[in-house]
Nucleic acid binder design. Structure first.
Lengths: 79, 79
DNA sequence: GAAAAAAACGAAGTTTAACTTCGTTATGCC
DNA sequence: GGCATAACGAAGTTAAACTTCGTTTTTTTC
């Protein structure tokens, strides 16, 4: 099984929206195409290591924040 | 600059040793060669996304644990 | 302190996942 | 409606991950 890409994609999208930027703006800042960002957010593939670092830098979060999600993706609906 | 691979490598080595297994044992369990593990631990390259997931599984830690290190990697040189 | 095991280290070649390009369709907002 | 944003597909390219083979160094252990 490979759920990590999916979870990572969702987390990236959430953090990107919190940062208030579009896929295109993120893509430009890290030197990727919009389609690649879209593919990553949709869980089609994960970023390579170098880009993982760039993403964190642009979003101004530590890399580990990009991997902060629950095992099983439950426990999400607390208000 | 690209310090992430170095930091990740050190963290991986620490966690592997905590788990009490050799590079070879880790390599076998995730389906890589010993040299690849060595290269990753030395920061020559990072694992691809799929293997990142496998590493975490074998070490029995959440992925984010592999990225838990201080920004700047200081505060390390106490004897 | 020798032998064995574990890991560092190099270089050159292979594989394949990440990434691109081009194009179409679907949503959401003004 | 019209514009921006993003989902979505497929086919091709690129480059980073990974391998292979071989040598050296460090660490462990007896």
């Amino acid at each position: 099984m490979g759920k990590l890409k999916i979870q990572f994609g969702k987390r990236l999208q959430a953090l990107r929206r919190e940062a208030g930027i579009t896929q295109e703006q993120l893509a430009d800042k890290i030197g990727l195409t919009v389609e690649s960002i879209s593919n990553i957010e949709r869980g089609l593939f994960g970023p390579k290591f170098e880009n993982l670092e760039k993403i964190a830098t642009v979003l101004k979060v530590p890399v580990k924040t990009l991997f902060e999600f629950e095992r099983g993706e439950s426990g999400k609906s607390q208000s």
